[in-house]
Amino acid sequence: MSGGDRGRADFDARMRRLFADVDTAPGFQARVMQRVAARSAAPRADLRAQFERTRAHATRNLVRQAWMNAATAVGVGAGGIALVWRHRLEITQSVQAGLAAAADSGVLIGIALVVLGAGLWPALRRSVTPL
């Protein structure tokens, strides 16, 4: 073996020794599998969290919608009452005129028959509808 070959062989041996202990810690594969298991569980957790977020969002929307509906009903009701209050005199006069007209003719009987028919209509319909 020449001096150059020996020098190179010594150098190679020293470098191999130097890197011999450069390695992963024991249990590398087990730690990899732990990470794999953790990542596999993560999507399920993500789906659960997404489901919870969607449900909370839907609940908020329903509550908001209910408040909007209530506010609309109150607004329409208040508006109706205000309108009636504003025209109370005209309404009173109209009702009185109507009652007076009904009192001296067959209109009252006609109205009574219509109301009676409307009340009985569902019962009559059920009786003629086949099962």
Partner: peptide, 18 residues
Amino acid sequence: DRAAAEDLAQEVFVKLWQ
């Protein structure tokens, strides 16, 4: 860096698994 290399090697194997 040995610790960083080991951490990265584990991540690489997780990617390979996927």
